Amino acid sequence: MTIALLDIAKEYHMGDSVVHALSGISLRVASGEFTSIMGPSGSGKSTLMNILGCLDRPSRGSYLLDGQEVARLNDDQLALTRNKKIGFVFQNFNLLPRMSALQNVALPIVYAGVGKQQRLERSEEALSMVGLADRKDHRPNELSGGQRQRVAIARALVNNPAIIMADEPTGNLDSRSGTEIMDIFTLLNQQGRTILLVTHEPEIAAYSRRVIHFKDGCMVKDERR
């Protein structure tokens, strides 16, 4: 198993009240799975993704990532785990506007201390994988929405992570660009990467072989295809 959650809960304290964002989630995701997480706004799916991606900690419960308990790692340990094992793709791309596509892709390996020449080679290779080698010197405002998301995918790939996590990756794209992006995720999964994707669109979830449904902080359905 790549991911194993046991009785994960996440609570937020708002004044005198407690918001239960996640309630007792137990879930296993095997290496190489393509899994979509669906649910309405406020269902807990993005909260779960933040915990899975080591961006947040659960209030209680166990999270094993490749056999390592990560629920109680400190901030530095979480950052190291994220950098080594997980690539992220977000709805809003999260690209730095003053940097070129190549420079944006290289950011994760700058933080990892990789030398300049190797950064250049790996970033160009990642852009080639998503069909944007000829746009490496373009800034985000010179690219279409679909191209910007492909840059974001290249950035997620540059450290060669085993897991790609995507939060509404087609939410800001037209249907044609969304199809192109999902074709890339499908190819990455066929190459052996584990894909975890949050979406509210059934046609996007249809690309995956497993769909987990959330409602009110609970996992209510687990479909395998």
Rank of each mutant, 00 (worst) to 15 (best):
A9F: 00
V70R: 12
S43E: 02
I86D: 06
Q77C: 11
L143Y: 01
S177F: 12
V114A: 00
R139T: 14
S208Q: 03
G171R: 03
S144W: 12
L64I: 07
V89D: 01
L95M: 03
D16C: 09
A9Q: 09
G32D: 06
H213S: 15
R57E: 11
D66H: 14
S123M: 08
A71F: 05
D216M: 06
A126V: 00
E223G: 12
M182D: 08
P58W: 05
L80K: 14
V29M: 11
L120G: 01
R155P: 05
L188I: 04
R176N: 10
G53R: 02
R150Q: 07
L157M: 07
R224A: 15
Q118M: 15
V18P: 00
E180Y: 02
L196W: 03
T194N: 03
D16I: 01
P40A: 09
T2D: 07
R135S: 07
T179A: 15
V70D: 04
S46K: 10
L187P: 02
M219W: 08
D16H: 13
K45H: 12
H13S: 14
R193H: 15
G42Q: 08
A21P: 00
F214W: 08
S41R: 05
Y111N: 06
I164M: 02
P108K: 11
V130H: 08
D16R: 14
V29T: 02
A162T: 09
Q77S: 14
A162M: 09
V198D: 10
S62C: 09
G39M: 06
I3M: 14
D76K: 15
D75E: 12
A112W: 06
R122I: 02
A133N: 13
L52I: 10
V220S: 01
N50K: 14
I109D: 03
L127K: 10
T35Y: 03
M182Y: 10
E203I: 11
R150Y: 07
R28L: 05
D216I: 08
V114S: 05
M129K: 15
D216W: 04
L48S: 12
T47Q: 07
G171A: 01
A126T: 09
Q149P: 04
A166S: 01
A71W: 04
L120T: 12
K221R: 15
V198H: 12
I204M: 08
K45V: 13
E121F: 07
S23V: 13
A30Y: 12
H13D: 00
T179L: 11
D222E: 14
E11V: 14
S46T: 15
V89F: 02
V114Q: 08
S41V: 10
R57W: 11
T186F: 08
P108E: 11
T194C: 01
K215E: 13
T179D: 10
Q103L: 11
R155F: 06
T170H: 11
L107R: 13
E121P: 03
L73V: 07
R225M: 03
E201K: 05
G44M: 09
R209L: 04
N74C: 13
G217P: 06
M219T: 00
Q147T: 10
N104M: 13
E11P: 05
D66Q: 12
M1Q: 07
R139N: 08
